[in-house]
Simulated scan of single mutants.
Amino acid sequence: MGKIGYARVSTTDQDLSLQLAALSAAGCGVIRSEKITGSTVTGRAELRTVLDFIGAGDTLVVTRIDRLARSLGDLQDIVRELKAKGASLVATEQPIDTGTAAGKAFLDMLGVFAEFETNLRRERQMEGIAKAKAAGVYKGGKTRIAADEVRRLAGEGVGPSAIARQLGIGRASVYRLLGSIKTSAPSSQA
């Protein structure tokens, strides 16, 4: 029966020290941390390590639920995984303890608000981009694949793998571009 801490911030310039101190003060024997977005659980190696390691009677401790997940679905998946292993979840700054009915209810409410906040931020970002485009300030991301160059090299007989290496792009992108050319070319079946 141990307490395992998990701390997370979204960007590399943010500081983890307050979360780490709070988790240590809460009695966590093991604390894992990472600097990565919380909008998805994909790619969060330290969280995966904690979830793989945690066992029956253990408690996952976070400072706030939004450090764990920003999506209600992800949060519920994590809680289900903990429950299946016989572990619980506690937040030091929020009245959350999945060992109690009230704690579970409050957890779900906070999960809804965390997801709502993420969706609002995304909407504001899209509105800002639309406004910048209308003002001629924002032109979108730079083109990462030079389609004309891929087609030129293919026309010179350079293979897809060589094209990908030369242009620093993935082979799948080369095949996708060349596929649109080949499907429009007449087939020569004998």
Rank of each mutant, 00 (worst) to 15 (best):
G2W: 02
G2N: 13
I4Q: 01
I4D: 00
Y6V: 06
V9T: 11
S10Y: 00
S10A: 13
T11V: 13
T11Q: 06
Q14V: 08
L16C: 03
S17L: 00
L20R: 04
L20C: 02
L20W: 01
L20H: 00
A21S: 10
S24H: 09
A25K: 12
A26K: 00
C28F: 09
C28H: 09
G29S: 11
I36P: 03
G38E: 06
S39E: 14
T40F: 13
G43D: 00
G43S: 08
A45V: 09
A45L: 11
A45H: 14
L47D: 12
T49W: 03
T49C: 05
V50P: 11
L51K: 04
G55W: 02
A56K: 02
A56Y: 01
T59I: 15
T59F: 04
L60D: 10
L60T: 08
V62Y: 03
V62L: 04
T63L: 07
T63W: 03
T63N: 13
R64L: 05
I65H: 07
D66G: 07
R67C: 06
A69K: 03
A69C: 14
A69D: 01
R70K: 11
L72C: 01
L72I: 15
L72G: 05
D74H: 05
L75D: 00
Q76I: 12
Q76P: 02
Q76E: 13
I78M: 07
V79S: 13
V79M: 06
R80E: 14
L82A: 09
K83G: 13
A84N: 12
K85W: 13
K85H: 10
A91C: 15
T92D: 04
E93Q: 12
E93N: 05
Q94E: 15
T98A: 09
T100H: 04
T100A: 02
T100D: 04
A102N: 15
K104W: 02
L107V: 01
D108P: 00
D108K: 14
M109D: 08
L110G: 02
L110Q: 14
G111A: 15
V112H: 06
F113R: 00
A114Y: 11
A114T: 05
A114D: 12
T118C: 06
T118V: 01
N119C: 04
L120V: 14
L120H: 02
R122E: 07
R122I: 10
R124A: 08
M126C: 08
E127Y: 02
G128K: 00
G128Q: 04
K131M: 09
A132V: 06
A134P: 05
A135P: 04
A135C: 02
V137T: 08
V137W: 01
G141M: 10
G141N: 14
K142T: 11
T143H: 10
R144K: 15
I145F: 10
A147F: 07
D148W: 04
D148R: 06
E149M: 09
E149K: 09
R151C: 00
L153N: 00
A154K: 01
A154D: 03
G155E: 14
G159R: 06
G159D: 11
S161Q: 09
S161H: 12
A162K: 06
I169H: 05
A172N: 14
S173Y: 03
V174N: 09
V174M: 08
R176F: 09
L177S: 05
L177E: 15
S180H: 02
K182M: 12
T183N: 11
A185K: 13
A185Y: 02
S187D: 15
S188D: 12
Q189Y: 10
